[in-house]
Amino acid sequence: MLILAVLRAQVAELSRNRWVLSYTVLLAVLTEALYQLSGSAPRALSGLLNVVLLLVPLVITVFGVVYWHTSREFTELLLAQPLPRRALWCGLYLGLTIPLVLAYAVGITLPLLLHRELTAAIAPLLAMYLLVGTALTLCFAAIALWIGATQDDRLKALGLALGIWFAATVLYDGLVVWFATVYSDWPLEKPMLALMFANPVDLARTVLMLQLDSAALMGYTGAVLANVLGGYRGALATITALALWILLPALAAGRSFVKKDF
């Protein structure tokens, strides 16, 4: 109940926040532009891949960190109330993520809805995009709250947020490509898959790629990929991994919040 009260206030606050609204508009404009350029909903979604994988973590971590610092005094006010810190943290976390998830969902769905493109044909792909976007939002919002709770200096926190974003979206992949090239004589399918699971952005991309037209390509990597990521077991593995990528940062962030001196 206490969580719900905090959550409700947070949602009320953030759903009117101009940055959250700008985020929705930005996603909607990008989706619309891709739709106009490519001429079809599946292609627009295909083009949205790197937008989602780069933009969502960037916006969520930066916004999360900034939001943490601007709302810090109010958080202290709430901390002075007789509710357990863990409950307060859950309220703050969900209150932060729910509006952002909604912003994301509305941003990419609305243009398709307006063009009457929400057909059964693109439903699985769109559902995948919603799932992956939600998972990335939850994951990086937790990371942002962890940064906030452990780093009081605003600039350092922002720097750390950008650093983590860059590492997860660009640096990591660069290293993986380098690794794959250097050890190209070895059987790399399994290590590569492990590396894909070890970074939420790569995991998200792999999941989406299997739904996209580039799936044709995936035949090339042979049975390993199909076995691990295909079918019922694959869905279970990817969903478990995504869940872990939410749970672990969330637990870490919650823990530092509970222990923190404000």
Binding site: V170, D173, P191, D202, T206, M209, L212, S214, Y220
Partner: peptide, 11 residues
Amino acid sequence: APAALLLVRSA
């Protein structure tokens, strides 16, 4: 390095 295919849609 065929395994790098997994990163074909990466930035």
